[in-house]
Design a protein around this nucleic acid. Structure first.
Lengths: 246, 246
DNA sequence: TCTACACGCGAACACCGTTCGAGTCAAACG
DNA sequence: CGTTTGACTCGAACGGTGTTCGCGTGTAGA
């Protein structure tokens, strides 16, 4: 079982730089590696949510102690950064089509949302941090490509990517927190909660809250799990389109 | 800010013996109340940020133990809710003017942003929670009034309030996190950080990141502390205006 | 003056992220 | 084929967190 692939006779020649860094890690039977740690963290996020993710929990799932993780990961923050970049590797941004850039951008944002939703809680650690890992930067490059296909002023294109991404992340964040706070809610629970809220708002004194009472029905129409997100996204894309140079 | 409670630094001399025997004095001072607790929490947020806010710290600043707070406040979450509602009491939404509703809405959102910024960290606990306290609901009523003045479809008005608020809160949240992570940054530090990022992006291989390299300059143009926020807000308001009925 | 009860609050519980340092074990060297 | 070496492991501990328990005290009402 002692790695048979190792060249045992060659004196010094084959020592490529990328092998050099891995050389030490290859020695151990690798019960622990950065990749395994990130994978475990993602699995915990997926199954038990953000609050369940602790260094101790990750270590326990790997059958070790928390201290062992720190040999492969600087701290929890870095672990989260790695996890974020890990999931963004799945993103696929199409070649920009100038005829269709708005819909392409819409789909790209939907895709980003779905990726984040698959691991609720990741959005929580994304806000305020620029995703600068290899996958993150590739994704941003993709966004910028789509935006540049829209014949927008440079500043509009550059800032729009930032601002729309913020909306997407915040949207997932909000949903995740709502789920966490309100228990393991299915779409059915959401409808029920919305019903209660609507009843409360309708019970408000009309004299002091005329507009809330008037809009109670549409306000608590859930519009399905994506309705509100799509509406906000559309709002920004409409605004963006109005910047397109004739 | 007339805070009746003394900070834990004990600026006052120790209680003299003749005062100590007068037990009447002790009752008159009402050392603990929900209002005082919320006030203290806001003061901590304002001066030391979100991470400094703990139940023990609030209690210490009030010269007592953490357990005592739970007689007036259910838990930290409720304390934060109360604090949010407390600051929103300052908000003043004007009478809707159908000629000018977009600018009124813009100002209302700017005002909301300024209020949240005054207590960085509050935004962090707002996401995912509907502000249903007396002040919060008054604010939402104000938003809805402005939106209804815009002659928008009911559903658009109702959802837009939600979605634009989300953007405002997320925007403050993001700034706050960036400040926290990156140290006590002044606007000058922000410019410096942006400069470093720009240099990095410009150093990327043009072949694989053509759009990032092309947009590096506008992307890291900070546009002052409000530039990006105003841009995103404008994006949503433009989109909203496009929904106005003929 | 005496009693009853609400409330202050020290101590404790179960967590958290992170650090320290002794122990281990495979690889490299002589 | 020892011996040394040093990266990796991980129990224990540190200083924090939110929250609960229950004793004791001080104040209000009788």
């Amino acid at each position: 079982m002692a790695n048979p692939a190792a060249p045992n006779e060659t004196p010094e020649a084959p020592v490529p730089p990328w092998e050099r860094t891995r050389k030490v890690k290859a020695t151990a039977r690798t019960p622990l590696s950065q990749e395994a740690i990130v994978e475990t963290a993602l699995h915990i996020l997926e199954s038990d949510g953000y609050d369940a993710l602790s260094m101790r929990r990750v270590a326990a799932d790997l059958g070790t102690g928390a201290a062992s993780l720190y040999a492969h990961v600087a701290n929890k923050d870095e672990l989260l950064k790695l996890a974020i970049d890990r999931v963004f590797a799945e993103a696929e941004i199409p070649e920009p089509d100038p005829e269709n850039w708005v819909e392409q951008l819409r789909d790209a944002m939907r895709q980003t949302r779905r990726i984040l939703q698959a691991h609720p809680g990741l959005a929580r650690s994304m806000l305020g941090r620029v995703p600068m890992g290899p996958s993150g930067i590739r994704l941003v490059e993709g966004f910028m490509g789509l935006l540049r296909a829209g014949n927008l002023p440079d500043k509009v294109a550059a800032w729009a990517g930032d601002v729309i991404s913020l909306y997407v992340v915040a949207s997932v964040f909000e949903d995740d927190v709502r789920y966490s706070v309100h228990g393991e809610t299915s779409q059915e629970d959401v409808e029920k909660w919305a019903g209660e809220m609507k009843a409360y708002v309708k019970s408000l004194p009309v004299a002091t809250f005329p507009n809330l009472v008037a809009l109670a029905d549409p306000m608590f129409e859930t519009g399905g799990p994506d309705g509100r997100f799509e509406f906000g996204l559309d709002l920004m894309l409409r605004g963006l389109a109005s910047h397109a140079q004739h």
